[in-house]
Structure formats: structure tokens, C-alpha cells
Amino acid sequence: MRKNRSLLFLIIAGLIFAASSFYYLPYYVSKPGMAKELEPIIKVENGYDGEGNFMLTTIRMGKANIYSYAIAKISKYQHIYAIDEIRSKDESDEEYNVRQLHMMDSSKTNAIEVAYEKARLPVKFKFKGIYVLHIVPKMPADGTLKPGDRITKIDGDEFKSITQFTDYINSKKAGDKISVTYERDDETKTVSLAIQPFQEDKSKLGIGIGLVEDKEIVVKPAVHIDTEEIGGPSAGLMFTLEIYDQLTKTDLTKGYQIAGTWTISPDGTVGRIGGIEQKIVAADKAGAEIFFAPNEEGASDSNYKEASKTAKDIDTNMKIVPVDTFEDAVAYLKKLKVKK
């Protein structure tokens, strides 16, 4: 009888544990992710190979349940964020994920542009349409369009810029209907949507989408970057270095394992990122020997200062290198002695 009661207790406890793990709190938890070699991810056609590796560093971010929240509370390199610190106002989970993937795509485009221009190779752009990031509730697009859709035509006509698109919409009156052609999951569809005033600002008209320009970069030799479901913009510098290294004969890695994190602009300037402490932990675990961190022109609270503090705290031998631009990173690597 006691054995049966004990077994029943264990079953009930297991069910409660399983059920409670699916109850999410209004928080996100981030923790150290991975440091992954970029050479298998990035392939420049007929590109050069290096002796060492550039590495992509990530953090793991997810909704908090009771248990992950409790663990994060007592873990030094796990952080808890309120939902409004991570997601925009009224942004759904789907829209958040689409935004993250779009930022990754933009990061790849910027990296290719910088690397090819620094290698003195031509860069061209092909306009592909309008990328839908957000759907405004109770507006005409709600229930028809989805985040991630690509709008390619309005009233049967293609447009060549986001300005041309918005100018056309602004030329319409409330109640006018437009034909919207869009792509989703490799299928092309066309729907009719009415122009309507926005609830928050009646002076503005539209169909109710948050949008960005969707463009494709065209370069020779061709380059392919396979990031799968990795999102966010913070791999920009490391993408740029790996592409540039494959484009040029000089091996910048010189046998070292080199990690880093920051956004990159089309002019090669780098930007601050979040979670750098966790990325230092991930890079150290993966055996990185050098880590590039945004210097932010020597700001007292820069990513570099945070990274250096974490490196000292975990007692790593990894060299933390401050950089403000792509050229800073290249200059450092060119002076680096070949690893013996």
C-alpha cells in the first residue's frame, strides 16, 4: 500500500512539474550560448582558407518559466528581462522572431558590403520589395498579411524603393482599395485591401503594416551565409572578417581561434551589443584565444570594459581587444605574430 502511495505521489509530482514548466512568466531569461566557427557557415566561391578560425558568439534567450526564472536568480551569468525590455509594444512572439531574423539578414548584407568594398570588389543591390515586420491590430492587413511576407507589387505595378511604395499609399484616400501582391513560403498571392486611418493618428493612412526595405546584395565572387535560425545583428563584425579573409590571400587568423561580437554599419563602424558578459563565457568555453569587443570610443561603460571585467572574473587567458571599426580589427590581426 505504501509503495502504491509513493508511486502515486511521484506520478502526481511529475505531472505538476511538467505542467508548471509550460507556465510562462512575463519575463525572458538570457544565458551564455555558443561560439561557433564561421568557416563552415560562410562560403566565398573559390575563397582562401585560413589556419585559424573566426567564431560567431551567441546568447540563448527564451521565455522564463518558474524554474528557469529561479535558476537565473541565483546564476551570475544569466539575466532576467521584463517582456517590454525585449519586445516592442504590442509585438507578438511571431513578430519578435521575424524582427530578429531580419536583423540577422541586415547584418549579413552589411558584412558583405563592407568586406567586398574593403577588398576593392564591386557591390550592387537588387530591390526585392517591402518586408513586413509588424501587423497593426484591427487594420486592413490584420488577418491577411503576416510578419515575414514580402510585398512585391501594388495594383499590379512593381516599385523600386520604400519611398515609392509609401508615396503611392499616401496618394490614396480613406476607403480606396488597392491590390497587394505578396510572397509567402515561396507562393505568390494577391489580395484587395482598403486604405484606412490609423487609430492612434487619424491623419495617417495605410493598410496597417510595419515595414522595411527588402534588398539583395549582388557580388562576385558569390558568397553564401547559412545562419539557419540564428537571429539578431551582433555577428556583423565576425561575418565581415570571415568574408574578407576568404576574399584575400593574407591569412588574418594566423592559426588563432578568434571570437567577437558587435553590429556593423555599411561604413565599417561597429556598435554596442547586449549580453557581452555571456558571450565572453561562451567564447572562453569554446577555446577562443582572442575576443574583439566594441570600444565605443573609450566610453567608461563600453562593451570592452564589461568584457574585460568578465574575462578577469572568470580567470580566462583570452585576450580582449578593443575596436571601433572593421579597420581596427584588421590592423590588429595584421600585426599579430603567426601562432607556433
Rank of each mutant, 00 (worst) to 15 (best):
M1W: 07
N4P: 00
R5K: 12
S6C: 04
L7R: 13
L8R: 15
F9L: 11
L10A: 07
G14W: 06
V29N: 07
G33D: 09
M34T: 10
A35G: 12
E37H: 10
L38Y: 06
E39G: 09
I41K: 08
K43E: 03
K43I: 01
K43L: 06
I59K: 00
R60P: 04
K63I: 13
Y69M: 15
A72K: 13
H79V: 13
I83C: 02
S88E: 08
S92I: 14
S92T: 11
E95V: 09
V98E: 09
V98W: 02
R99A: 09
M103W: 03
M104C: 05
D105T: 00
S107T: 12
S107F: 08
A111V: 03
E113V: 00
E113I: 13
V114L: 02
Y116R: 05
K118I: 05
A119K: 06
R120H: 07
K128C: 10
K128H: 03
G129E: 05
G129L: 03
Y131L: 07
V132D: 12
V132C: 12
I135H: 04
P137I: 15
M139A: 14
M139G: 05
K153Y: 05
D157Q: 15
K160V: 01
I162F: 04
I162S: 13
F165Y: 11
Y168T: 05
Y168K: 12
S171W: 00
G175K: 09
D176H: 07
T181V: 02
T181N: 07
Y182T: 03
R184K: 01
D185Y: 04
D185K: 11
E187W: 02
E187Y: 06
T188S: 11
K189H: 08
K189T: 02
V191S: 10
A194K: 10
P197E: 08
Q199C: 02
D201C: 03
L205E: 01
G208Y: 14
L211T: 08
D214A: 08
D214F: 09
I217R: 04
G231C: 11
S234T: 03
G236N: 15
L237W: 01
F239I: 00
Y244N: 13
Q246C: 09
D251A: 07
D251R: 11
A259N: 05
T269N: 09
I276K: 01
K285V: 01
P294R: 10
S300C: 05
S300A: 01
D301M: 03
D301N: 06
K309M: 03
K312E: 15
I314N: 15
I314W: 02
I314S: 14
T316M: 01
T316P: 02
N317P: 04
N317A: 11
M318D: 12
D324A: 13
F326P: 00
D328N: 09
A329E: 03
V330I: 15
A331T: 10
A331P: 14
Y332A: 14
K337T: 01
K340T: 08
